[in-house]
Amino acid sequence: MARFLSQLKSMHRVSRLLLWVCALMTMLPLHAEYGDVVLNRRAEKEGMPPVIYPHWFHRIRFRCKVCHFELGFEMRAGSNDVTMQDIIDGKFCGMCHNDEVAWGVENCDLCHSGRPGMKSHIYGGHQTAGPGIW
């Protein structure tokens, strides 16, 4: 009986340790979501935080072809020279971010929400760090 109790106790200790490890893992800042893109070709030079573009959010609502075919976004992070004027004129992001399909350009902070100093790049943390050219 005593042996059983001590076994139970040590199992309890192990499970508590496991719990702490799991809790720590969820709290540690690890990774961006797969396919997240930082756009900072112009933003910080012009005094705004970098833009975070989440592929996951957009692909629930639009197929790739909408942006990469109709709107003409080149499939390489940082290769599209997009200005705010273009967006206001309804080009690139401005095709939807016009207060009709999605929020308009007055909501600066919703797109320009990145940490300072990040390079234009594709991020995301599952298994592959992303191809060399990115």
Binding site: L18, A23, M25, P49, R115
Partner: peptide
């Protein structure tokens, strides 16, 4: 303990935006 850790694991599968190393 296992059940709780599984729940915690599931919750941590997708990083919260505030904690993803990209968003400020």
């Amino acid at each position: 303990g296992l059940v709780v850790s599984m729940v915690l694991e599931a919750a941590g599968r997708w990083r919260p935006l505030a904690n993803d190393n990209l968003h400020d």
